[in-house]
């Protein structure tokens, strides 16, 4: 989607420019929040929250947008999903009675801690991200490649190299200490 909006007029509060902006980006924002919403009615409310956030406090959020750093559609999608998620979280916090929270979630017992030092640079950020997407988000290689804008083969090789590092690291950690047979 080509981004051509008179941002200066928009943040001045020009009603006609705002109306044109809404007509142009309502579909994009609606479709962005749909992934976070429970149903279409909820998506409409969340999209309205996004527009409200964009114009509140004298367009404070819109004034932070910088067209030299990212496209407006991309930025709006990120802002829309983030706003929608925050709104949903606030709503859920209001509605969740304490009795509904499992006792385990409220406990403050310490998790058993492995007494092994974690090397800071064992995995690169890209490797951590790919493993997170595979094992925690259960995403397919093609999905990961599309989300990261990289080749599927790169995803496979990143995964492979990360696993080699993890295996090697934990094999060393798990190896029994060698006995000193001298003397």
């Amino acid at each position: 989607m080509a981004d051509a909006v008179d941002l200066a007029a928009l943040v001045r509060g020009d009603k006609a420019v705002w109306a044109a902006f809404v007509r142009r980006y309502a579909g994009l924002i609606f479709s962005a929040v749909r992934g976070v919403a429970r149903d279409p009615g909820d998506a409409e409310d969340l999209a309205q929250e996004v527009f409200l956030r964009l114009c509140k406090d004298d367009f404070r959020l819109l004034k932070t947008y910088d067209s030299t750093r990212a496209g407006l559609s991309t930025w709006l999608t990120i802002v829309a999903r983030s706003t929608a998620r925050d709104a949903r979280r606030r709503h859920q916090l209001k509605l969740t009675p304490l009795d509904a929270v499992p006792e385990a979630a409220l406990s403050v017992t310490d998790m058993p801690r492995e007494q092994i030092k974690l090397p800071d640079e064992l995995l690169s950020p890209r490797q951590k991200l790919v493993l997170t997407m595979i094992y925690e988000k259960e995403m397919e290689v093609a999905e990961i490649a599309a989300a990261l804008g990289i080749d599927p083969q790169t995803v496979r090789s990143t995964h492979h190299k990360a696993m080699l590092k993890l295996r090697s690291h934990f094999a060393l950690e798990d190896a029994p200490p060698k006995l000193d047979r001298r003397g």
Partner: peptide
């Protein structure tokens, strides 16, 4: 991660 994927798709 889904936000980034959605933003990339929106382009």
């Amino acid at each position: 991660i889904a936000d980034v994927a959605a933003a990339r798709a929106a382009i």
